[in-house]
Simulated scan of single mutants.
Amino acid sequence: MKRGDKLIGIKVGKVLEILKCNINSTEILVEINNHNYKAINYNRLTGDVKIGDSLLLNTTAVDLNLGTGGYHFVVSNLDSPNKDITNGGHIMKLRYSPYQIKVFAAEEQGSIFHDIFNKFKSLNGMPVIIGTLHSMLPPIIKVLKTYNKNIKIAYIMTDGAALPIDLSNTIKDLKEKKLIASTITIGNAFGGDLDCVNIYNGLIAAKEIIKCDIAVVTMGPGIVGTGTKFGFSGIEQGNIIDATNDLGGIPIAVPRISFADIRKRHRGISHHTLTVLSKISKTRAVVGIPNFEESKKEYINLQIDNTEIQKKHKILYMDTTKTTEILENSTINMRTMGRDFQNDKDFFITAGLAGELGIKILNDPQLEILK
């Protein structure tokens, strides 16, 4: 990078059409220099928009042809630029950037929950399912709720990918169907039912404020990867495993497994998972592996033996019959890297098994399954 290089694409566009609208976000069609583009307006950040409004737009990702779904993002409504902030909250996210926002963090001094964090003792063996992709969330939740419709689930979204939770159509769908009880956004992610500063307080909030039976942690939509050993945002899974153990929970690490991905580094158990479990996490996680057919089993067993992750972690080989049946009959939208359930069953079944494993642990007070 040279001095003076521009890091952000900014253009002015006019609203042509309102495509979708809900309380927190609006999808619109905008015209820029006689070309039409889709854009997203976060209503809580930039207010309402209407047809004819002139908007300042961040066009960076589309300019670079990145996989963002082809959306620009509204920075400001030039026809209504002045917005008053609501009272309360002093914790800044996206700090010291032009886009910094304030949230009322659950743990800050003015919060009614402040003392809960200081009095916290332990998660008392609460299972915490830890994924690396947002697309792991639907199969995990579907399996959990099928086994126990009354189970109370907290979803914790990290800042490893999308920062606004309002971007996630998956979360909208799961909340509308009442499949997750509450959401928590941590780090620089924002917009959950609760905001917390980091994963430790996010887990404490899930246990002590939401009073959940089980927590599921993943990043939001998107993931950063560079094709290097440590250069991917899913590396956070290792730190979350350790945080869960630090607080007295039981971490269930969701392995990223696929035989549909054409990239060799993601074949079988992804190098992301192998790196996290062998190099990053310093403490033990429970890992469910599907009982695949012989050729896939041999491939995965060789990966496990080569990395020796079985020496650090509890690897459980699981029958997939029930989870497969649940997911095959599900109406929840499941897609990962452009592939649906039928085109990447191994990925979604592996994620669903983490939900089944969470149920088994909840139903096993003596934790015989982990011995």
Results as ranks from 00 to 15, higher is better:
Thr275Phe: 11
Gly249Val: 02
Pro255Thr: 05
Ile240Arg: 10
His271Lys: 11
Ser278Phe: 00
Arg267Asp: 11
Glu236Thr: 04
Leu277Phe: 05
Ile250Lys: 06
Pro255His: 03
Arg263His: 13
Leu277Ala: 08
Thr283Glu: 11
Arg265Lys: 14
Ile241Val: 15
Arg267Pro: 00
Leu247Val: 13
Ser258Gln: 09
Gly268Ala: 14
Asn245Cys: 02
Thr283Ala: 04
Ile240Asp: 10
Glu236Arg: 10
Ile257Ala: 02
Arg284Asp: 05
Val276Ala: 02
Gln237Cys: 03
Gly238Asp: 12
Phe259Ser: 03
Pro251Trp: 11
Arg265Ile: 13
Val254Ser: 02
Leu247His: 08
Ala260Phe: 00
Asp242Lys: 05
Ala253Asp: 15
Thr273Ala: 12
Ile241Cys: 08
Ile269Ala: 03
Arg265Thr: 11
Leu274Met: 15
Gly249Leu: 05
Leu274His: 07
His271Trp: 02
Lys282Asn: 14
Arg284His: 09
Gly234Val: 05
Ile240Pro: 09
Thr275Ala: 06
Glu236Asp: 12
Gly238Gln: 00
Val254Asp: 07
Gly238Cys: 06
Ile269Glu: 02
Leu247Arg: 07
Thr283Pro: 05
Ile252Val: 15
Pro255Gln: 08
Phe259Val: 05
Gly268Thr: 07
Ser270Asn: 10
Glu236His: 13
Ile252Cys: 14
Ser281Asp: 05
Pro255Trp: 10
Asn239Cys: 03
Ile252Met: 11
Pro251Glu: 10
Thr275Ser: 11
Val276Met: 07
His272Val: 12
Lys279Ser: 08
Thr244Gln: 03
Arg267Ala: 09
Gly248Phe: 01
His271Glu: 15
Ser281Gly: 04
Arg284Thr: 15
Asp246Arg: 00
Arg267Asn: 14
Val254Gln: 01
Ile262Glu: 14
Ser270Ile: 06
Lys264Glu: 15
